[in-house]
Design a protein around this nucleic acid. Structure first.
Length: 193
DNA sequence: CCATTGATCGTCT
DNA sequence: GACGATCAATGGT
């Protein structure tokens, strides 16, 4: 399992009227212990334990005090590799997706960006560790359609401070749902007084 | 379209 | 105590 193999696959959450499906158009690889930008770089912690487990499970994390983002653990080794789901196209449950992001104007932006993608699928901390390969799970993955190698582009990862030169971000060429690249910039602290 | 900035809190040191 | 795998609002071009 490699990051580019995930492009074109479909992540599905919920059933019936709650079903939402997202076809992945942009992903970003994190090489566990070998990668200073990875949450697994300093070894397992309670939060990152699932990254050190078997492939095909979900790893969700909370950032900036307000957003959830989702990864798929890729394994199969003890390296704790994972792939961040950066963007996708909502292919089913568009009304549910719109309801979860009522301020988003265009459907193509509904699952653009990792936090938006997780929101549309209804993912949060309770989803972490879920096995995506179980067909009856609340969250599961379908094969989707194959994306040809010639349609895949790669480039630097978004918003990472270290290992910034690695080209571990992959997306489907010319897809309107792919997120915009933003280089990492240092963050000003809120004034103390 | 682009650039800038505030919001907000779990996690690890 | 500092920081972060982000987003949306704002204001300019």
């Amino acid at each position: 399992m490699v990051a580019r193999d995930l492009l074109g696959r479909v992540i599905v959450s919920g059933d019936g009227a709650h079903r939402v499906a997202v076809r992945l158009t942009e992903v970003e690889a994190y090489r566990g212990r070998d990668d200073s930008a990875s949450h697994a770089f300093r070894g397992p912690t309670p939060r990152t334990a699932v990254m050190f487990g078997p492939a095909g499970h979900l790893y969700t994390y909370f950032v900036y005090g307000m957003h959830w983002c989702a990864n798929i653990v890729t394994g199969p080794n003890g390296l704790a590799s994972a792939v961040l789901l950066r963007a996708g196209e909502v292919v089913d449950g568009i009304d549910v997706a719109r309801g979860r992001r009522p301020k988003v104007e265009s459907d193509r932006l509904l699952a653009r960006g990792p936090a938006g993608l997780a929101t549309v699928l209804g993912l949060d901390g309770s989803s972490s560790g879920a096995d995506l390969c179980l067909p009856n799970s609340e969250i599961r993955m379908h094969a989707g359609s194959q994306v040809s190698e010639s349609a895949i582009r790669s480039g630097r990862r978004v918003g990472v401070a270290t290992a910034a030169d690695l080209e571990l971000r992959f997306w489907i060429a010319d897809d309107p749902t792919v997120s915009a690249f933003r280089a990492w910039t240092p963050r000003r602290r809120k004034p103390v007084g």
